[in-house]
Write a protein that binds this DNA or RNA. Structure first.
Length: 110
DNA sequence: ATACTGACTAGAA
DNA sequence: CTTCTAGCCAGTA
């Protein structure tokens, strides 16, 4: 019971390991957990666990497969996600991560 | 208990 | 090239 027993905790654990200035996709995290088909759960559960555990999760580093900030609405301000990414050196253009393929971080690369 | 929703992805037309 | 459909699993009503 003291360990992770929910998919949520697993997702949070991976997200918290994302290096600064990097981004990843939902499917990549899901695949790292052994569920390459549950990409939807990653985003949905992150929204639910953004502040879960009393800690903030850098969910702004997670974007969809196209590099678009689909999850910006989960933040206090929809503009906040973009500012957070730009604050880490990630350039955003039209709600999309510039050079997303170059900044992509593979969670399974650990 | 079932039904519906959702920060997605990949494949098909 | 664009657009749509189906699959996926957990959480909430």
């Amino acid at each position: 019971m003291t360990q992770n027993k929910s998919f949520c905790d697993n997702v949070v654990a991976i997200v918290k390991q994302i290096p600064k200035g990097r981004v990843t996709s939902y499917g990549a995290i899901a695949a790292a957990l052994g569920m390459p088909r549950s990409a939807r759960m990653v985003g949905y559960i992150l929204n639910n666990g953004l502040f879960k555990g009393g800690e903030f999760i850098p969910a702004h580093r997670i974007v969809n497969r196209n590099g678009y900030l689909t999850g910006k609405h989960a933040f206090p301000g929809e503009q906040m996600m973009q500012e957070l990414l730009e604050n880490e050196g990630v350039i955003i253009s039209d709600n999309r991560v510039v050079e997303f393929k170059k900044l992509f971080w593979n969670p399974a690369s650990l």
